[in-house]
């Protein structure tokens, strides 16, 4: 168990080092999030639809698009000069590779989530956020499920001739529940509803998160080994 955790940590740390050293890719993701918030701010007629009514949905959608693109990139870095082949030829378990890559993807997703939250609330003119702790309690399981699913299918799409275009086709239908539960729960937090009216959705998000990590860890070797 400790060995698996160590492998996962090594892979996550390496992925994040590569991502931060590549620089430009992270910057483009940040630019995407800020620009998305900026454009949503213009596209919405705030005299008819208050920003507070849609900010939760738009934040979740922005996180979904940015993190799905990020999951594909994590495997692009591996394929640069065939490095992933050599990782798979070490004794490292496929389960540990999956967990490590999910952790790296999750870290970037958290960065995107925080940025999306700030950008969208600013551009949509939302002044009351509700409890930040409650927002975190919703985004935490939601982003875990999202990252695990995107990591699994990110690898699968690299195996396919369709590449990047396949990833949203595979992930978006599966992530529909996360979007529904997450956006609904976040909207309720923005409306400062009591936690009793939100906790059921949080539990569903945790169930999805645990399920997607478990299924991904068990099945990942099918998308790595020939």
């Amino acid at each position: 168990m400790m060995r698996e955790l160590r492998w996962s940590w090594l892979i996550a740390r390496k992925d994040l080092s590569l991502e931060f050293r590549a620089g430009g890719r992270l910057l483009s993701m940040i630019a995407f999030v800020v620009l998305a918030g900026f454009l949503f701010g213009f596209a919405l007629d705030k005299s008819q639809v208050p920003g507070r009514a849609v900010v939760a949905s738009l934040t979740w959608l922005t996180v979904l698009f940015a993190s799905t693109a990020g999951a594909g990139r994590i495997f692009d870095m591996e394929e640069e000069d065939g490095a992933f082949r050599h990782v798979l030829l070490t004794p490292v378990s496929r389960r540990a590779v999956f967990i490590g890559k999910t952790v790296a993807n999750l870290t970037l997703t958290w960065l995107i989530t925080a940025l999306s939250f700030v950008a969208l609330t600013s551009f949509l003119g939302v002044r009351t956020w509700g409890s930040l702790a409650a927002h975190a309690a919703i985004f935490l399981p939601g982003t875990i499920g999202l990252s695990a699913t995107a990591t699994f299918f990110g690898r699968m799409s690299r195996h396919s001739n369709l590449g990047d275009s396949l990833l949203p086709v595979l992930t978006f239908p599966l992530l529909a529940p996360v979007m529904f539960f997450g956006a609904t729960a976040s909207a309720r937090v923005f409306m400062a509803l009591p936690w009793d009216e939100i906790s059921g959705l949080a539990r569903l998000l945790w169930a999805f998160a645990i399920g997607s990590v478990a299924v991904g860890a068990v099945l990942f070797h099918h998308v790595t080994d020939e």
Binding site: K14, S17, L18, D81, R85, L89, T90
Partner: peptide, 30 residues
């Protein structure tokens, strides 16, 4: 897998890492 080594025409090294960081990473995986 622990008993084999592979060299191919694609080097399989991470370009943004130094040679030492690459070796340290793969040594740790082993």
């Amino acid at each position: 897998r622990a008993r084999i080594g592979l060299v191919s025409h694609r080097t399989g090294l991470y370009e943004k890492l130094t040679a030492m960081e690459n070796l340290r990473f793969f040594a740790a995986l082993h």
